[in-house]
């Protein structure tokens, strides 16, 4: 078996004339969390659909746990859990009924609904209809649904988008717990801080192509710039910002003149964020 849990080989998908995913190739190691980052319309969701067997690639192939997704769809889907960006639960049914239904679809016979709901912070609400849940509760229930059968690969599409900090943190902790269990996580997100905190590697996708794929640290080293940002007071008393790039030959002189010639009010160093790097690589922002 391949050491990669997920392998994308030259994946291509078109909507008519529009090439949504263009010759995308990458691999995700077992037990790794890969962040898949890109703006709306970049091809993230289409890629996830091909990887999860919802759409067949027009060219290339996707291998999950060594199986071709298009040819062994059901076998692959038995090993994966998918959490969607938009809540797609049966709102007329309770949390317990939702989970019991999917347990039967995954042929899980001994599901402990209470334990699973306790894990996502929904203990005591199992009999309530999902229609009455908050957005954060629904999102947590969707994560619980994706975990019913202890999948070997977890696909999470914007799992913390628009959630309150408590719910978002609960979901991030669950992602880390799943990695501890040995699951591979494919995380689609807009949140660069989340990606930086959770992901072993991140892939930037733009206009259907992978623009960069590496660890956050390596990307910062390769593409990022370090600088010092200082606020200085002018003769009129107004504040102005000065930025001095680090790692440049003229950096020592610039710093010296800053302190000798200006009235420094605040000063701190700043590292490039993943968003800065994304903009630098692709020429466009994430939102």
């Amino acid at each position: 078996m391949s050491e990669y849990a997920i392998v994308a080989e030259n994946l291509t998908y078109r909507y008519g004339e529009l090439v949504a995913v263009d010759d995308v190739s990458f691999g995700v190691a077992q037990g790794e969390i890969l962040g898949f980052l890109g703006p709306n319309g970049a091809g993230k969701t289409t890629t996830v659909r091909m990887l999860t067997g919802q759409s067949r690639p027009h060219e290339g192939r996707a291998l999950l746990l060594g199986l071709d997704v298009a040819r062994h769809t059901s076998a692959v889907q038995a090993q994966i859990g998918v959490c969607f960006e938009v809540a797609n639960l049966y709102e007329q049914m309770s949390a317990a009924e939702n989970l019991a239904l999917f347990a039967q679809l995954y042929a899980v016979r001994d599901l402990d609904v209470d334990a699973l709901l306790r894990r996502v912070g929904l203990a005591g609400r199992e009999r309530d209809r999902v229609g009455g849940y908050s957005k954060g509760m629904k999102q947590r229930l969707m994560v619980a649904r994706a975990l019913i059968h202890q999948p070997r690969i977890l696909f999470l599409d914007e799992p913390t988008e628009g959630l309150d900090p408590v719910s978002a943190e609960a979901i991030r902790n669950l992602v880390l717990e799943e990695r501890e269990r040995g699951a591979t996580v494919f995380l689609t997100t807009h949140d660069m801080l989340e990606a930086e905190r959770l992901c072993d590697r991140v892939a930037f996708i733009n206009q259907g192509r992978i623009a960069a794929l590496d660890t956050p640290h390596s990307l910062k080293q390769r593409y990022g710039t370090r600088l010092v940002e200082a606020q200085v007071a002018t003769e009129t008393g107004a504040l102005e910002t000065r930025e001095i790039m680090l790692d440049e030959p003229e950096t020592p002189g610039a710093l010296q003149s800053l302190f000798s010639q200006e009235q420094v009010v605040t000063i701190h160093s700043r590292e490039a964020s993943l968003e800065d790097i994304f903009i630098r690589i692709t020429g466009r922002g994430l939102s």
Binding site: A75, Q77, V82, F102, L105, Y106
Partner: peptide
Amino acid sequence: VTGTLRALVTTPLR
């Protein structure tokens, strides 16, 4: 419309 069908087809259900 609500996407529950999409949730169903990502399970082993054919």
